[in-house]
């Protein structure tokens, strides 16, 4: 009976994962390997293709007049504009992760301040995990899979923009080697969110209890669906240590951008998350 409960929990989290996250690993891998009936993604590999692709990135919010201005503006602003649209997407993704968190059984019964703390500290880790399936060693899908941006192009941007994604690529290549599927990912994301050691938590016990249950479900699922992958559960959990370092470095880079880029403004939701984070 206990393992039936754990399976039910795994199924529930997988369903809310599918409900709240627009681009699954299965879909992303199909796009990346060309095994989809949809058209191939538009490739951004230089400034010219970035300018062309910007229309697609911003198609949902950028009016024609803005677009003309964008086309006329100097290259120097291209990075800023691109990272501005990255921020909008990130803010949107934060709200998707929030909805996913709320769907974890017991989460909304936690102290509201603790819910905020769990999201504040967990959400960038979750986003880094979620971008991994969109990446391969040569680049990453963006804009819901409509665009493929090459790793070389991201590396060619001016400092410090060029330093933002490279550590995520390195992590992703290692993480993708574990070959988790979407249902494994759903459980792992819940484990990350339910971390009882985040600074400033008021009531740790109920969070640890929830995490314990999800950990059991993850362990059971990995054993069942990847029987030949030795120590997979331990290897997945080890990735949580790498994530903390990645987030610390990311927040430092954002801090640097704030100091060096006069035109830089951080999305208010991302500001809330990053302020006094580490």
């Amino acid at each position: 009976p206990e393992s039936a409960d754990l399976r039910a929990l795994a199924r529930h989290l997988y369903e809310s994962y599918l409900k709240y996250f627009p681009l699954t690993k299965a879909k992303a891998r199909a796009i990346l390997s060309g095994k989809t009936s949809d058209s191939a993604p538009f490739v951004i590999h230089d400034m010219k293709s970035l300018l062309e692709g910007e229309q697609m990135i911003n198609s949902r919010q950028m009016p024609a007049q803005e677009l003309r201005r964008a086309e006329m503006s100097v290259m120097h602003e291209v990075e800023l504009r691109f990272f501005h649209s990255c921020q909008s997407r990130s803010a949107e993704a934060v709200s998707e992760v929030t909805e996913f968190a709320k769907s974890i059984p017991g989460f909304v019964s936690l102290d509201l301040n603790d819910q905020v703390t769990l999201l504040k500290y967990g959400v960038i880790e979750v986003l880094i995990i979620m971008i991994a399936p969109l990446m391969n060693k040569d680049g990453t899908l963006i804009s819901y899979g409509q665009i493929f941006m090459t790793r070389e192009f991201l590396k060619s941007l001016r400092k410090p923009f060029c330093e933002m994604m490279e550590p995520k690529f390195e992590f992703s290549v290692r993480f993708n080697a574990l070959e988790l599927d979407d249902s494994d990912m759903a459980l792992f994301l819940a484990v990350i969110i339910l971390s009882g050691d985040r600074p400033g938590l008021l009531n740790v016990k109920p969070i640890e209890d929830l995490q314990e249950t999800v950990l059991h479900a993850l362990e059971l699922q990995l054993k069942t669906s990847h029987p030949d992958s030795l120590q997979l559960f331990a290897k997945v959990l080890q990735k949580m240590t790498d994530l903390r370092q990645l987030v610390t470095d990311h927040v430092q880079l954002i801090q640097l951008l704030k100091e060096t880029e006069v035109d830089w403004c951080l999305h208010p939701l991302l500001q809330e998350i990053m302020r006094d984070l580490y």
Binding site: S88, A91, E92, V94, S95, T98, K102, V108, L112, N113, Q115, V116, L119, K120, H267, P268, L269, E272, I273, R275
Partner: peptide
């Protein structure tokens, strides 16, 4: 609470889209 206004709103609003 003031420091995390939007996060609070996201957590408390169910289904209604929050103006991000």
């Amino acid at each position: 609470k003031e420091k995390h206004k939007i996060l609070h709103r996201l957590l408390q609003n169910s289904s209604s889209p929050v103006d991000l």
